[in-house]
Design a protein around this nucleic acid. Sequence first.
DNA 1: CGTCAGCGGGTTTTT
DNA 2: CCCGCTGACG
Length: 656
Amino acid sequence: MLNKNQLEAVNLVNGRILVLAGAGSGKTKVITHRIAHLIKNAKVDPKSILGLTFTNKAANEMKERLNSLIGSKAAKDVVLSTFHSFCLMILRKEAEHLGYSKNFSIYDNKDMQRLLSQVLKDDHHDEKKTPASSTILEKISEIKNKNLNLEEYAFDDIESKNLYQEIYPKLAASLKTYNAMDLDSILTLTDDLFNKSPQILKKYQEIYKYILIDEYQDTNNIQYQIAEKLSQKSNNLFVVGDDDQSIYGFRGSCIKHILEFKADHTVKLEQNYRSTSIILHAANALIKNNKSRYEKSLFSQNLSDEKIVLFHTPNEEEEAKAVIERAIALKTKNNLKWSDIAILYRSNSLSRNVEMALLNAVWKKDDSYVRSIPYDIYGGLDFASRSEIKDLLAYLRLISNSKDQEALLRIINVPRRGISDKTIEALNNYSKKDQTTIWNILQKIYQNDENLINELNLQPKVLHSINSFMEVIEKAKFKFSNEKLSQAFEWLIHSINYKKAIEEDVKSEKARQIKWENAMDCLNAITAYEESESEPSLRDFIANSLLFKDNINKKRSSNDDRIQLMTFHSSKGLEFEACFLIGLEDHIIPHEKMLTSIEEERRLLYVGITRAKKYLTLSMSRSRRRTASPKASNPSRFLFEIPKELLKIISWKDLC
DNA sequence: CGTCAGCGGGTTTTT
DNA sequence: CCCGCTGACG
């Protein structure tokens, strides 16, 4: 059950409580048990408990654990979500106070890039002189997440400062006209709302009297502000974290918040219940090399003589194959399920070879040999970024929020209906001149505004195209608000002749099939969403597809037994009997672009290592394709920080 | 108006 | 390798 320290943390009901919890020391257990304690013993209303996490996986994990602890009936009123979805919920309710309407769209990076290049173009910036749009957006994101204003930010030079001072308000203004927010604004606007309106803040302070935050070391300044403001009145803030697992510095997270947390009580959890002592020793030895950290002594009583296996292969294909061979052997020998096994890597691109190897692997199932090992993959080329799905989602966005100009521009000629770039350009210019949106112009055209049609010099063919486009959207709006989502969506796919468009467009049978499957995946996702929600709505489905990327993929086969593939980042908070950490090479981890924050890279590997309960395998390849051609790779410098006596170095050939 | 080949450029992590 | 963009051509 709970140990002494865990129990102490669980039983503290009021005040500001800091739990410093090492990897595998039962963080989630403490949070869920504390929620159970609040409800059952302290008679706290479940609706007033708010549990915040940073990833959806962590939120789901917590929900499941709480369900099994106190039953889903009592658990369902507790709000357990990520910062982003929690803030989104507030913003949907309070949008009007910020000059938005409730059906606002959410823009991903791609949308923001398009929007930015439009802004730059309108301002006649020479694209060659300005930095890449991704650089600009990254910087803006950093400024937002660190909760700075432009004056406070240390720009490299006066020119770039001027550039940002010009662009920043324009981006914000465009977003507002399009009734859209980027992901960072979901947080910053919530904070703005609280600053602007004490009454609204008070309302939420009175709803959420008990706030718990998991992985507190990952809070960035804006999240910190929100948490502090919400808990100001009740003064009940329970935060759990581990400075050694802070891995979101690139998103503005700052260990300072956990190190300087003003706590009424501090509880330390130092016993690791997850990993064997060998694995834990390796992790401790590694992380000891970090200078900025709390000294702590994690220990484990899980004794085992299973050493950490390490091998290298001549190339990445062999690495992936060897990993899979060992996974099969481990499974057979120790009677594991596939889902007990995880393959972890620094960056998503490393999953490719592994996926190929999984596809081609042969293994023994019920006395016969089968090909292919089932797997789940998180992140990477996710649901919402496949182009057909982006198209269909853009339709849904426009239907839900007709001001969403990025969505409109994406699909106005998809499938092709003869509205050329020239026409779009003309519409765009007119919209600027007239201080209106393209959507408004289209509506006037649709209502047969002859002056406008003449002024724009629209040919009958184009006019017809525009009208039929508008007709589909208008009809769809009606359908989506009066019928089941899945039904309306099927109608939409049919009405825009999506299948025919694919058939005419795509030559190869295979590509055609994939595209159609993607469209059907989208339909499946809508159906699954509709069945899982008590009050399904189009706008929430769209937001979810962005905010809960992995859920949508997962729902198709949640109870299957599959190997888990994910990045070190997304593995945080999870645990597996067997873990494979692959690609442990010196340009991958530490990543060559991250040499300035080497300690965070080390923490990242630390997170990976501490996911394993019993079996840990480390691998690397002596060569790796970078850009196009393969280059020699060196072992990660971190590998030398693990004491040799904990390792069993084997030859990859023994695995095949 | 739409297509497609050719070219150049970029490749970290997440909501 | 995979993308997005461009410009020439049908």
